[in-house]
């Protein structure tokens, strides 16, 4: 069972307390954007066998959304961070690159 640290209330929450919300840092498409942009926003998802940045909600806890860096091939958790960020913070990136040298977030690649 996954155990994630909620960066808001500080609880180490078990998976049954949490609700998974899919890929993090999506950019919302809006009026006037192309069909491709909407396809990207609505359906295209990073589906890496490896590092995945994702949203979780502490549903049966404080109720807040937070973000998490996790490895889909090993289930290792690199860390969690508040949702009010537009990119993974430096300490999370450091934790990831310690295991995956040269890793960079898709928006920075």
């Amino acid at each position: 069972m996954l155990i994630l640290h909620c960066p808001y209330c500080g609880v180490y929450a078990e998976e049954t307390e949490l609700h998974a919300g899919g890929e993090a840092h999506l950019k919302r498409a809006t009026i006037g954007d192309s069909d491709e942009a909407f396809e990207e926003y609505l359906f295209m998802r990073e589906n890496k066998k490896g590092v995945h940045l994702e949203r979780w909600r502490h549903a049966n806890g404080c109720g807040k959304w937070f973000l998490c860096a996790r490895d889909t091939a090993t289930l290792e958790v690199y860390g969690t961070y508040p949702a009010q960020t537009t990119e993974p913070p430096a300490d999370i990136v450091a934790a990831i690159t310690a295991k995956h040298p040269g890793w960079s977030w898709k928006e920075k690649a």
């Binding site: 069972m1 998974a20 994702e54 889909t72 091939a73 289930l75």
Partner: peptide, 13 residues
């Protein structure tokens, strides 16, 4: 399960 996973193991709950 609700989250992306490649491990061929799911959560017991």
């Amino acid at each position: 399960d609700s989250y992306n996973n490649y491990t061929q193991r799911g959560s017991f709950h």
